[in-house]
């Protein structure tokens, strides 16, 4: 299997699906001629032409809404929001329309569509361009939410999302675009939606993570191994559907859990995951579930203090030590 970046894996997934199905179309701000703000759509206009690869005006709500209509009309649109922060301008179409039309119309239509949106913090882009909004989408019934951590998952999950008949929020992490890993070049390589993956096996504590937080959890686990603490890392891969079974089974085995989320702590998805762990195996827990979260502040610009706002491998290590020493 060739090594490739997360960016190139996404690009390959788009190319393969555009080749695979003529009903797949893609649009967004600067995706065609400019080849994408993060160059994920490089080469698409040249290969597939103006009919299928389309630049749009800066009108996020309509970028999503046109995809809703096109999906209803029989296409498989992929719409790119330049960053997830701009999804806030499209929340009406995402939450009131994309998530609702299937059920409120009694199942008479469905939406095979994907909204791709890069996000996350750590690039010194300050408060309006550094957000992790995954909890917002996970909260809303009717959406699927994919959050790949590795190049292989990026490719496999994007292809599954495009082929799925439900609307998917596909959240890419800006700091992962240059990360490398082995990726299958099989055009039928798919990663199923709704299946978490144990990225590292361990016996003492389970770290539940997603997207870039999985990579940090793996770094923390390697560090903790030196201290003789064996961490199991569960990568959620999709937040909706949420594979509760896999992380609860892991916690049943290890008896301890740390949940890592890049989003804000207050009402963040980590609280929900923790509650599912308590519901699923409270009697087997040896210490309280720990949460490592983004700080509850608008992101500052200065790199010295920006770092304080985003979970780091050290903060995960500290949380694991805490849960190892904690007792019920």
């Amino acid at each position: 299997m060739p090594d490739m970046t997360y960016r190139d894996a996404l690009n390959l997934a788009l190319k393969e699906e555009l080749r695979h199905d003529p009903s797949v179309v893609i649009w967004g701000e600067d995706v065609a001629l400019y080849e994408g703000s993060f160059k994920v759509t490089r080469g698409l206009l040249a290969e597939f032409g103006e009919e299928r690869v389309k630049d749009t005006p800066i009108s996020e709500n309509t970028i999503v809404g046109v995809a809703v209509g096109a999906a209803m009309g029989g296409l498989r649109p992929i719409a790119e929001l330049m960053t997830v922060n701009f999804a806030l301008l499209a929340m009406d179409q995402i939450v009131n329309h994309m998530a609702k039309v299937s059920s409120m119309f009694g199942g008479q239509t469905h939406l095979p569509m994907v909204i791709r949106a890069p996000g996350g913090g750590g690039s010194q882009l300050a408060a309006q361009h550094s957000q992790s909004l995954e909890s917002y989408f996970m909260h809303c019934p009717g959406l699927y939410v994919a959050v790949p951590a590795t190049p292989a998952d990026a490719k496999g999950l994007l292809k599954s999302s495009i082929r799925d008949n439900n609307p998917v929020m596909f959240l890419e992490h800006e700091l992962l675009y240059n990360s490398k890993g082995e990726v299958s070049d099989d055009p039928e390589f798919l990663v199923p939606l709704g299946k978490a993956q144990v990225k590292r096996e361990g016996t003492d504590v389970t770290i539940v993570a997603y997207s870039r937080m999985t990579i940090l959890a793996l770094q923390a686990a390697a560090e903790l191994e030196k201290e003789g603490i064996s961490c199991e890392v569960v990568d959620l891969r999709t937040l909706s559907p949420l594979d509760t079974e896999t992380f609860v089974a892991s916690v049943k085995k290890t008896g301890r859990a740390v949940v890592v989320e890049e989003c804000w702590h207050t009402a963040g998805l980590g609280g929900h995951i923790a509650s599912l762990i308590y519901e699923g195996c409270f009697d087997l827990l040896q210490s309280p579930v720990q949460r490592v979260s983004g700080l509850d502040v608008p992101m500052p610009y200065s790199r010295k203090i920006e770092k304080l706002c985003i979970p780091q491998p050290e903060s995960i290590v500290a949380a694991v030590r805490e849960t190892m020493s904690g007792k019920y």
Binding site: N61, T62, V64, G65, V66, A67, V68, G69, A70, A71, M72, G73, G74, L75, P77, Q93, H97
Partner: peptide
């Protein structure tokens, strides 16, 4: 926007 999407399709 949904009307535009249907018209596009």
């Amino acid at each position: 926007p949904i009307a535009c999407g249907l018209a596009f399709a």
